[in-house]
């Protein structure tokens, strides 16, 4: 696994939780929004294994509703446990980011 994908693995989950929290959304839109924020070389398909895992851990629920012209998109929403997990992620991210930034800035070539 490349350094980049190791770094991304945990972070991407947090980003997905945060985007779903901002607005219930479906897979394709979610991948567009990740790209809009600059995560352009995350392959679009990689969100689906993560969404399945988040559903299994009951952090998000996806609902597929019927409509006259076939099913509607599967929309994802955070559960209470999901909100809690997001808050934990934000807390941890905030405690890691500033020191890492400081270390990198000092050592920048």
């Amino acid at each position: 696994m490349s350094l980049r994908s190791q770094l991304l693995k945990g972070t991407l989950e947090g980003c997905i939780l945060s985007l779903i929290n901002q607005q219930p959304t479906y897979g394709y839109e979610l991948s567009l929004r990740l790209q809009e924020h600059g995560l352009t070389d995350v392959s679009e398909g990689s969100i689906y294994p993560i969404l399945l895992r988040l559903q299994k851990e009951k952090l998000v629920v996806g609902t597929l509703k019927k409509s006259p012209s076939g099913p509607k998109r599967k929309y994802y929403q955070l559960t209470d446990a999901g909100t809690k997990a997001l808050n934990e992620f934000i807390q941890q991210w905030n405690s890691i980011k500033p020191p890492v930034d400081r270390i990198i800035e000092k050592g920048e070539m």
């Binding site: 394709y28 398909g45 689906y48 597929l64 099913p71």
Partner: peptide, 8 residues
């Protein structure tokens, strides 16, 4: 998930 992949 198969349907999601298809629609994507």
């Amino acid at each position: 998930v198969l349907l999601e992949l298809l629609e994507h």
